[in-house]
Design a protein around this nucleic acid. Structure first.
Lengths: 352, 352
DNA sequence: TTGAAAGCGCTAACAA
DNA sequence: TTGTTAGCGCTTTCAA
């Protein structure tokens, strides 16, 4: 009741009440008071006054003056995937741990929108930007450079800035080996039985394709044949690719690698349309982890990128002065079928 | 190369170059120039100058002066769920459509953290806040009131502010009816075969429980018995509940309602530990939609809340002057097993 | 149709 | 150890 909307207290209000000057109050409240040699006593007095009046600094004013904002940006292609939503969740925790307010935005895989989005972040003077899976990382990079904005690429490398990415090649290789081994338990397998769906002409997809082929070569020796189908990161395009394959062969490949959980949704759509049929004899590998995906009615091997380590390394890079553009690789984890890993949700307090 | 880091242009730079005053430039660049009766010619000149110099307004300065920020906040409990990540995605689109920059944060189901988080948003002078599933909506409400911050509850109602929520009772009822009907196809079913797992003592869970019981009464007439197990929104607690049931009965219920996809992950954990067993004869309903969940090796009925409509209505409420606290109900959609719905991902440009 | 001037709340020299 | 002062870049009266 009594908690009406009240004008927020400013350092001037506290300055009057405390008898100290505004700059003293300012120094106390932003933590620089020790090095400004303000007496412990004054500091205490001001702090308790601040608490009493529920003072919180106006970040716009602070930012305007200091040309920092305390905002950390994360640019995602989309949220709506367990991979990217875990990234948002983890980013939030790590940013807040550093006293930053996370601002997560999505560029929706559109180079123009990516640039506009980053420009709008720049107009808020964000302090740093994590670029996760931009379609055009180097375009975004240029915007950052013009603005003097420190930034790192996460998960998809750019040429021009530091990048922290998964070891896509190695991950794809162990994933492919795993599904091949599994499929071989059901009988002899040839290279034509092992396919790859999804991805586009980006660094991650290229590396994964190399790893995929390396594993096939290891299993079958040299082989020839068209064994990959590039569909972009689109569920519907991927569904079409499965339809085409099905039309031609009367079934899905015994064993296949799906480039991401987004593409995996394309398989779901395909399955939704082929209701009567069984898929019990396929073996699938997906370069992404989704807990529900892991329990589908056929064996699904998954790769879980180590998001938390990628972000930690990203923050480290930003805190490191002026490292030249280079790439940091982070190992990811092979997840066996029917595995429900713990995730960010498990760290929550939940008292019920 | 030539795009070095350059000091950002200000209205004063443009004022000098254009020969107009700073206030004229300001008016032109923030769109208020028509009503300030500035000549089309001056306006054009300044605008082209602005484009040439890639001028973008400093939002901190603008916000400081006008005590608005152009930021719209969304408080989530967690990101890492298809429901909440869809909400983040949809919120982003709708906020940007209105010229706002979305700031999505998570309160991690901790009342203290929720309040602190909102306070930090307040210190950035955000213009409005959407509260989605706060543990303590009314605590958050108070923070908003003190700050004069317009806000709405989404998906979980508060007593004190306007709320837009799913029709939980009706949704639960049709979901429960659907799984009962499905399970009855496999043979006679009694009320003891129909269970509910998950949730806590919040409005959504209570309403869903009522709907659940209404459907059971409709199917079986009156009945008695302990048929719900409240586990909070925690995968591990939910897994334990399934373990306990399994220990007592040697199997899972033939037919059960899971309160949310977070609780559903608890079922996955249970299944991961019971590898050899079949779950082919259970029928599950989940109050949330997850595309992968829909294709698990047993029938899964799901409810998809209409996120986009909830958010639209939320924006409308905020734009409406001073409506008294009330609740807007939004219908959700029953999703049959093995259904891959389109989602926000499908609106993306994706040129393979 | 335009400009001058004040000030949003804060920080950081520089003085005292 | 503390206070004075001058802005950060913008919006907004008010006056011309």
């Amino acid at each position: 009741m009594s908690e009406k909307e009240q004008k927020k207290a400013t350092i001037y209000d506290l300055s009057v009440k405390s008898g100290a000057s505004a700059s003293t109050v300012s120094a106390v409240l932003n933590g620089s008071w020790r090095k400004r040699r303000i007496s412990e006593e004054t500091a205490k007095r001001i702090m308790s006054l601040a608490k009493e009046h529920k003072y919180t600094a106006n970040q716009q004013a602070r930012g305007l003056r200091s040309s920092r904002s305390g905002l950390a940006g994360l640019l995602l292609p989309v949220y709506d995937t367990r991979f990217f939503s875990s990234m948002a969740q983890t980013f939030e925790v790590q940013a807040r741990k550093r006293g930053l307010l996370p601002v997560v935005v999505s560029g929706r895989r559109d180079p123009d929108e990516e640039r506009r989005t980053v420009e709008s972040l720049v107009s808020y003077s964000i302090d740093s930007l994590f670029i996760a899976g931009a379609t055009d990382p180097d375009g975004v990079h240029k915007v950052c450079v013009r603005a003097g904005l420190p930034h790192v690429n996460i998960d998809l490398p750019g040429e021009l800035a530091c990048s922290v990415i998964s070891d896509n090649r190695h991950g794809a290789r162990i994933l492919t080996s795993a599904i091949i081994r599994h499929a071989q338990q059901a009988g002899p397998l040839g290279p034509d039985d092992v396919y790859m769906f999804g991805g586009r002409d980006d660094h991650a997809s290229r590396e994964r394709t190399i790893g995929f082929h390396a594993a096939k070569t290891e299993a079958f020796g040299t082989f020839a044949g068209n064994d990959t189908e590039s569909t972009g990161y689109s569920p519907s395009m991927t569904a079409l690719a499965f339809e085409r394959f099905y039309d031609r062969h009367g079934r899905l490949p015994r064993c296949f690698f799906i480039n991401s959980s987004i593409n995996f949704e394309g398989l779901l759509r395909f399955m939704g349309k082929h209701d009567g049929e069984a898929f019990g004899d396929i073996v699938v590998g997906c370069f992404d982890y989704d807990p529900f995906g892991s329990f589908l009615p056929f064996p699904v091997y998954m790769i879980r990128p180590n998001i938390s380590e990628m972000l930690e390394k990203g923050f480290e890079l930003l805190e490191t002065p002026e490292a030249a553009s280079h790439i940091v690789l982070v190992e990811s984890q092979l997840v066996l079928p029917r595995t429900a890993l713990e995730g960010p949700l498990d760290e929550l307090k939940d008292n019920s």
